[in-house]
Amino acid sequence: MSAALVLMCGLAFSGKTTVARTIAQTLDAVLVSLDDINDERGLWGGHGLPVEEWRRTHEVARTRLGFALAADQAVVIDDTSNLRLLRDGYRALADAYDAPFILVFVNTPLEDIRERRAEASTSGDRRSVDGAVFAEHAASFEEPQSDELALLHRPGDSLDGLLSDLREILAGRVADRSSTE
């Protein structure tokens, strides 16, 4: 797989990380997780972080993305991508490397997310997100608009179908790029 950027988008606890890992493994892509970067920096976004700390985390992610794209590798960014301006920034970065950009919106119903959050807080299998932090996150979340051409994935949808769509899109874009050179 040559250079490409797949950007995950969705509320916390929507299932993005599971989908991102599958995509990265299937496409033999580099996985860049903003949660992992925060962990490396000794931070946890689930308790709330100042905007400046998120900026630094995104800067680390963009740097890693740039190295991978320059090395002609595909990259999956695992983040909520909750704001249009963040998504547009990653889209512009992909364009700067002449790499295809695909937005994957994991659209999970809030009731499912509530159940997942409750399970996480009791099981200890994963870190939780404070109630106030999640409420602010959900209230400020900007769903992708139709002009963003996001691939939509919902709980119960086939991952095989999503992966097939990704392969088709990437094959078409790569063919389109090579036919103009």
Rank of each mutant, 00 (worst) to 15 (best):
Q25Y: 05
T26D: 11
L27M: 08
V30T: 13
V30A: 04
L31R: 05
L31A: 07
S33P: 11
S33T: 14
L34R: 07
I37S: 00
I37W: 00
I37R: 00
I37K: 00
N38D: 14
N38T: 10
N38K: 14
N38Y: 12
D39L: 09
D39V: 09
G42D: 05
G42M: 11
L43H: 04
W44R: 04
G46C: 02
H47Y: 15
L49N: 05
V51Q: 15
V51F: 13
V51D: 12
E52Q: 11
E53V: 08
W54F: 09
R56T: 12
R56S: 14
H58G: 01
E59V: 05
V60H: 07
V60D: 04
A61G: 07
T63I: 13
R64D: 02
L65C: 07
L65K: 01
F67N: 12
A71D: 10
D72I: 01
Q73W: 08
V75T: 09
T80N: 09
S81N: 15
S81V: 04
N82A: 14
N82T: 11
L83V: 12
L83C: 00
R84S: 06
R84I: 08
R84D: 10
L85S: 14
L85H: 15
R87C: 04
G89V: 09
A92M: 08
L93Q: 15
A94D: 13
A94S: 15
Y97I: 11
Y97C: 10
A99Q: 06
A99G: 09
A99M: 06
P100A: 14
I102F: 11
L103Y: 01
V104H: 00
P109V: 06
L110I: 10
L110Q: 07
D112A: 07
D112P: 00
I113N: 05
E115M: 13
R116V: 01
R116T: 03
E119D: 12
S121G: 14
S121N: 15
T122I: 15
T122H: 14
D125R: 15
D125S: 10
R126T: 15
R126M: 11
V129R: 02
A132S: 09
V133C: 12
F134L: 00
E136G: 11
E136S: 13
H137G: 05
H137D: 04
A138C: 04
A138Q: 10
E142L: 07
E143M: 12
L149T: 08
A150W: 00
L151A: 11
L152W: 04
H153A: 03
H153D: 01
D157N: 13
S158P: 00
D160S: 14
